Simulated assay, not measured.
Amino acid sequence: MAIYVFAHTKGGVTKTTTAINMAAMRAADGRRPLLSDSDSGQSSARFINARKLADRTPELVDIPFVSLVSYMQDDHSWYQIDQDILKLAKKFDDVLIDAGGEGHGSPEIRMALTIADMVITPCGTSRPDTDRLAPMDAMIRDARVLNPKLKAVLFPTRASTNARSSDVIDFYRDVARFKQYEVLETVVRTRDCYTKWLTTGEAVFEQKKPPKAALTEMAGLYKEIFNGR
C-alpha cells in the first residue's frame, strides 16, 4: 500500500485532472485505489458524481472515493484527516489524495504530507504558477522532519503546443530554485480532452477518441509516478 498526494497551493494547475486520471488508470491496471478529495473545492467529488451519472457501455472502471476535509473544531483545533486516511488505507492497494489550500497554512496538505509516500505537484509553466511553489517547497521540507521517506516530484502542465514556445525551458530553469523537488520528464500540454471529465466523468483513456498525444502524456506520467509499484 502506498499513499500519493496530488497537491499545489494554487488552483487551475490541473491537480485534480492529474489525480483523477491516475486513479482511473490505476483501477484499470488491476489495482484497488482509493481516491480521496481533501480540497475544499471538491473537484474530485464532481468527477465522481459525473462518473456515476455517465451513460456508458461498457461501464467506467470503479474508483472507490471518499471526501475528507479538515475543519475547525469547537476548541479551535483542526480536525485531523491523517488518521482517517491511514485507517482507510489498510483496505486499499493505493490511496490517491487530491489536496489543496492556500499558502503555508493549508492543513489538508500539511497533514497529508506527514503520511504520504510521494507528493506529486503539477504546475503551470507561467511565472505566477511557479512562484506559488515556494510554500509547497517549504511544507515538504517541514514534513520531512516527521516523514523522511517522503518523495516529492514536480512536472509542467498546461504547456504550449507550439513547438516554437520556450515556456517549458523557462519552467525548468525557474523551478531549479525549489530544492525539495525532483522534476519529472513528462510534460503535459494544453488539450481540450483534459477538461472533459467535468461533464462526462471520463479519464482521458476512457474517452471515445482521445488524442494520441494526450494518451502518451498520461502513460508517461503514470510510469514515472508508479514506476512498477
Rank of each mutant, 00 (worst) to 15 (best):
residue 183 V to C: 14
residue 43 S to M: 04
residue 89 A to R: 06
residue 137 D to G: 02
residue 89 A to M: 10
residue 101 G to C: 11
residue 24 A to R: 00
residue 120 I to T: 01
residue 196 K to G: 00
residue 32 R to V: 10
residue 229 R to A: 15
residue 33 P to R: 01
residue 25 M to I: 01
residue 114 T to K: 15
residue 139 M to K: 01
residue 15 K to W: 02
residue 5 V to F: 01
residue 117 D to W: 03
residue 115 I to W: 09
residue 24 A to I: 05
residue 177 R to V: 12
residue 204 V to R: 04
residue 44 S to R: 05
residue 130 T to Q: 10
residue 67 S to A: 07
residue 110 R to A: 13
residue 212 K to P: 04
residue 33 P to H: 02
residue 134 A to I: 09
residue 229 R to G: 15
residue 161 T to A: 11
residue 174 D to H: 13
residue 177 R to W: 12
residue 125 T to E: 00
residue 142 D to V: 02
residue 215 L to I: 11
residue 226 F to L: 11
residue 23 A to R: 00
residue 198 L to N: 07
residue 86 L to W: 08
residue 89 A to E: 09
residue 82 D to K: 14
residue 122 P to N: 10
residue 214 A to H: 02
residue 124 G to E: 06
residue 64 P to G: 04
residue 157 T to L: 09
residue 102 E to R: 15
residue 96 L to T: 02
residue 55 D to A: 13
residue 144 R to W: 08
residue 158 R to I: 08
residue 60 L to E: 03
residue 186 T to R: 12
residue 96 L to I: 07
residue 72 M to S: 14
residue 111 M to V: 08
residue 219 A to I: 06
residue 216 T to K: 11
residue 111 M to A: 15
residue 212 K to W: 03
residue 22 M to Q: 08
residue 23 A to N: 02
residue 53 L to W: 05
residue 186 T to S: 12
residue 212 K to R: 14
residue 213 A to F: 02
residue 131 D to W: 13
residue 2 A to I: 15
residue 149 K to I: 14
residue 141 R to Q: 14
